[in-house]
Design a protein around this nucleic acid. Structure first.
Lengths: 128, 128
DNA sequence: ATAATGGTTCCAGTAGGTGGAAGGTCAAGG
DNA sequence: CCTTGACCTTCCACCTACTGGAACCATTAT
């Protein structure tokens, strides 16, 4: 498979796949013309990374998860630990965003949103 | 005031204040020794930006909001529009994160988390 | 032969700062 | 007067995870 096929099948942009090669996730062979050639295993790895990324795992998490995935003797506890850590980070981000959301939607509700200059949103931002 | 005083009073790191000067938010005068000198108005502006940033507004949003703040003839509708746009982005992020969270916490619940290698988390990531 | 498509490398830029080096300045204490 | 330590300066690099674009080579279809 060429990179375009892998891109289509994995759902990742070709640029991202090249980037993932740069940072060492995959090492596709090269054809005589210099083109990358991917086998099913590499496609699989890329899809794995793509799915992990979409669940909010960082690139470093992906390295760990891939290593665990390829380690037949892994303990599921190790995977669970990484996943729980990620969950905690997701929860922290949600909490942050919800706090912002609460403040902001309160301010929006208070703002008349008309032609006049008086604005509780600006008042709040400016308050010392 | 020197930059350290402003940092303490605004809650922003001195590095960030220098950065905000670089990108044109403030233009503090300089003393004979080259030190930046800040007046109350600049402190105020920095605090305004800090608060806006903590509510999730981008730097570009901050530029808009500051301009509105300094425009006596603004319409509160303009401020409200920026705020609503930001709220929509926050909501989109929360929704994304909650979708991740749901999938991930489901997988975590299914994983035994022991010494055995079987792991529904990896199975899910690997599934084509 | 040519055009469209797809591949390659490399460099730069994104957002919003943060870290660190190398060096100038100022106030207080011995 | 000198030193120490806290502050200040600039500049350059680095962070995450890509993304865009230029310049160029290869393949395929017409």
């Amino acid at each position: 498979m060429n990179i375009g096929d892998v891109a289509r099948r994995s759902g990742l942009p070709a640029k991202t796949i090249r980037y993932y090669e740069d940072i060492g996730f995959i090492k596709p062979r090269r054809g005589a013309n210099g083109y990358r050639y991917f086998d099913e295993k590499e496609l699989h790895k890329l899809a794995f990374i793509g799915r992990a990324r979409s669940l909010g795992f960082t690139i470093e998490d992906c390295r760990t998860l891939l290593a665990l995935y390829e380690d037949e003797d892994r303990a599921s506890a190790d995977v669970k630990r990484v996943a729980k850590q990620n969950l905690a980070e997701i929860d922290a981000k949600i909490a942050d965003l919800q706090a912002m959301r609460a403040t902001l939607s309160h301010l929006i509700a208070e703002c008349a949103g008309d032609h006049r200059p008086d604005c509780p949103i600006l008042d709040d931002l400016a308050k010392c």
